[in-house]
């Protein structure tokens, strides 16, 4: 599964409070988007476009188990590639269907605005401007199936395995 998109660069240790500030957690979902990275990158949400790619350093998504990955999906980020992704955050990426790869060395391979091509099925990341490549852990067929379906519960719904949801879902 290939994704090609314009790159936004972020540093190390981008935590869940930067992605989804605590004061917004209980706001309506449409409003939550406005606050993504408000502390470290004010105004970014107005510049980012569907399909754009986030490239970051070490330990992206460290922090709480709150569904911050879902906000990046809602902003229609095409993919997330980092030197390393926090484990719990990676779990949330898969389960909310955000293509995400940990590839050591990827952060220094990109400058902002360049174009990245990512294939989570093979684990490869390429800088289309410089031609350099790096690869990380490929997703398994089962994970790709979750991604294609649009997330865990969506996959169950697609497979006809979901009859109803709680009213807040």
């Amino acid at each position: 599964m290939e994704i090609t998109g314009r790159v936004w660069c972020f540093g190390d240790d981008v935590n869940t409070d930067l992605i989804q500030p605590m004061h917004t957690v209980f706001k309506p979902v449409e409003e939550q988007h406005r606050y993504v990275f408000e502390a470290n990158r004010p105004g970014w949400v107005n510049l980012v476009e569907p399909g754009d790619v986030i490239v970051a350093g070490r330990n992206f998504g460290t922090g709480s188990s709150r569904p911050a990955a879902k906000l990046l999906v809602d902003l229609r980020i095409g993919a997330l590639v980092c030197d390393s992704i926090n484990w719990l955050f990676f779990r949330n990426c898969v389960n909310f269907a955000l293509p995400a790869l940990s590839c050591h060395g990827v952060a220094r391979m990109f400058a902002e605005g360049q174009t990245a091509r990512i294939d989570v099925g093979t684990g490869s990341v390429q800088n289309l401007e410089t031609g350099s490549r790096v690869s990380g852990q490929p997703w398994t067929a089962e994970l790709l199936d979750i991604l294609r379906a649009g997330g865990l519960l969506e996959q169950l719904a697609r497979d006809g395995l979901l009859v109803g949801r709680g009213t807040d879902e």
Partner: peptide, 20 residues
């Protein structure tokens, strides 16, 4: 595991882990 994942595992009988 998370609540949506638990529903998933109840239906499917499998899940995934990253090996530490």
């Amino acid at each position: 595991i998370g609540a949506p994942e638990l529903i998933y595992v109840m239906a499917k009988g499998f899940t995934w882990f990253q090996v530490g």
